[in-house]
Design a protein around this nucleic acid. Sequence first.
DNA 1: CGTGAGTTTGACCAGATGGTCAAATCACCA
DNA 2: TGGTGATTTGACCATCTGGTCAAACTCACG
Lengths: 205, 205
Amino acid sequence: MKPKAKERMPTRIQKKNRAAILEAALNVFSAHGFRGATVDQIAAEAGLSKPNLLYYFPSKEAIHAALLSGLLDTWLDPLRALDENGDPLEEILAYVRRKLQMSKELPRESRLFANELVQGAPRIHDTLSSDLKALVDEKAALLERWMDQGRIARVHPYHLIFSIWSLTQHYADFDVQVRAVLGDEDPFEGAGPFIDTVYRKLLAP
Amino acid sequence: MKPKAKERMPTRIQKKNRAAILEAALNVFSAHGFRGATVDQIAAEAGLSKPNLLYYFPSKEAIHAALLSGLLDTWLDPLRALDENGDPLEEILAYVRRKLQMSKELPRESRLFANELVQGAPRIHDTLSSDLKALVDEKAALLERWMDQGRIARVHPYHLIFSIWSLTQHYADFDVQVRAVLGDEDPFEGAGPFIDTVYRKLLAP
DNA sequence: CGTGAGTTTGACCAGATGGTCAAATCACCA
DNA sequence: TGGTGATTTGACCATCTGGTCAAACTCACG
């Protein structure tokens, strides 16, 4: 039997409104940063009045925190998927491609994190040096094993990971700049093959 | 004889205070973004009262604009220095090294631009699609010529330039993340050789 | 020195912003 | 259908923020 929960099930309306708020907040926070976003703006975009929005989340901070922690997993999933048992180069290329695809399909999420990081990550610093560091340590060790086995070329494993982040997220985070330079050309059209080549040549044993 | 200028020479005090304000503004804007920075904060950091600061610059916007336009040249100088007459690979590697050094020595400047770009560059969009685009077009054409001559491997020249920007500026813009993962290790220690290797392997004809 | 330009400041303002609250309205089901 | 808890809102508040202004002060130079 179900132990009676202190917290009740979320109602249909709660589910709908919470989702609408997070969606709107993602738009606004990713476009203007935490400080640049206003509660009114988020409320308007979610189709709610400000007091109504604050009925669902206790504060602006809370919305932001909910967004970040809710998205962090999604964000790191591709790295988690790096599989010890796969072919090293193909595993890494798959990771790169997934990350680039995320830049294309989830640019708001990327910019949300970029905004936070570029300003010193005041609200997620702890998560970075615990969860993120642990995951990267683990995967860097895997990369190092592959290098020891001569299955990919030897490079600094941490900087290899950083390079994948920077090369792929660049297209989401600095989208305006990329488009200003490229004009009409679709950035991802050329980026995919380019980055692919980078890692094929870099990691060829 | 000197034509009498409508505008007088800046006094000693003007020079000192303008410089102090821009220095303080660079600190504050790069750490908090335009919206997150307050005039009081900048004034305090510059050792002036708010009204006094606004005696030297007419508005917060004006300080930000002065900073950006003053720094844009510095920022693009390394790319401008890419020399048609040098050895292609060495020229590109020199560009990469200069950019990485700038990330190390001028991280505030890098983050100032990063903050602006990640939020859609509302205040420098025009400069990007005119000046920046023109410069990149010119240098991309040079890279293409080098490729035509078989002096470096053929890759998408624009994405080659983007990759240099992203790989190097990553270490300034996302400094907290890099340090959270690396712990005590100096990021630039490993980044230099790593990025060097990337471009040597990528561009070997 | 005295004087006018250059510099500094306390007091102030209007608008924006995050957040509160009591009252009104709505949705569900016994 | 009535009642109860969930939802919504208009009015309001305190604080922050960019910016103004007149008055006071300082400096350089004749």
